[in-house]
Simulated assay, not measured.
Amino acid sequence: MTHRIDPEVREGLRAFHALTGPRGLIDFDIPRQRELYEEMNRAALAAQPPNDRVEYEDLTVPGPADAPDVAVRVYRPAGTKGAGLLPGILYIHGGGMVTGSVETDHRQVLPLVEAVGAVVVSVDYRLAPEHPHPAPVEDCYAALLWMSGQAAALGVDAGRMALYGGSAGGGLAAAVALLARDRGTPRLAFQMLPYPMLDDRNITPSSHEITDIGIWDRAANLQGWQALLGDPMGTDGVSPYAAPARAADLSGLPPAYLDVGELDLFRDENIDYAHRLMQAGVPVELHVYPGGIHAGELLAPDSELAIRINEYRLRALDRALNAPAAPR
């Protein structure tokens, strides 16, 4: 399959394997996976020039009932505090439900703040297997409730709030959208879902096809879902707030943007979810990238494909959150 990967992305994947071995992170136990993931992202961030156009602060906010407070990092364009209301984005990091933090995705949030001119709240949710479902999604929803309740103090326009999450973060973002709909608050304007992790059943053709690519393939996906769900994984008892592909009704959700690579394990479940959203009357923009793999734009950030992927995402967010309201 390697020959089908975009050539520039393929070089990025080889560089990743030079650090991890050809099977990626799956050959390490989860604590070591977390260490390596943090180390690689720190190195990538250190290679970027300093950015004084974005300011941020770390806070703790009320967590779910009978649970610890949730750590968040609040970003805004520099110099905009008190200067009017901005769009708000709840950002949920990836990492397969078992790794990742606000630190690992810091470099991805910075351009998002600048391009959209938004206040971004990045949530440091609890990780599986120490904290299985529903801890991660409830942490994210608690952060969203705090963001909505503090919108005026944050300088956020409560009518222009969106979710953004990739991979596991995309699955959690889709689940938070379901929770917000079903619990009646808050109202969301948009959901940005790059290659979201949606379906614990692992029965699609692409979930069997992507087995030895060395970046979030079948073995890694099974490990992530097992950590989150334990024995119920794949059974009829799994909640749609854990695996949004299980949701029977997708109506009433905010407009969505999904993208996925042709060679991503999540390809088929993402395409199916996009189709089901459309069938439920939800406006959807869907991109499938030939030669693309899971997180390929992060492995080869200067590649033509990565530039195209990031440009489309940022344009879609900007349109959703900054375009003039249509006349009624």
Rank of each mutant, 00 (worst) to 15 (best):
S251F: 09
S251I: 10
G252W: 08
G252C: 10
G252D: 12
G252E: 11
L253T: 07
L253R: 05
P254R: 03
P254Q: 12
P255N: 11
A256F: 01
Y257A: 08
Y257E: 10
Y257K: 07
L258A: 04
L258P: 03
D259G: 06
D259Y: 00
D259I: 03
V260G: 04
V260D: 00
V260P: 00
G261I: 06
D264M: 01
D264E: 12
L265Q: 02
L265Y: 04
F266G: 07
F266D: 00
F266N: 10
F266T: 00
R267L: 12
D268E: 10
N270R: 08
N270Y: 06
I271L: 15
I271T: 15
D272P: 05
D272T: 14
A274V: 10
A274L: 06
A274H: 03
A274E: 00
R276C: 04
R276K: 13
R276P: 03
R276Q: 07
L277V: 13
Q279M: 15
Q279K: 15
G281A: 10
V282L: 13
V284Q: 09
E285V: 14
H287C: 12
V288T: 12
V288N: 01
Y289S: 06
P290E: 12
G291F: 09
I293D: 02
H294F: 06
H294Q: 08
G296S: 09
G296A: 06
G296Y: 01
G296F: 03
G296C: 12
E297I: 07
E297V: 09
E297T: 07
L298V: 03
L298N: 06
L299T: 04
L299E: 02
L299Q: 01
A300L: 12
A300H: 09
P301S: 14
P301M: 10
P301H: 09
D302I: 05
S303N: 10
S303R: 01
E304H: 14
L305H: 03
A306T: 06
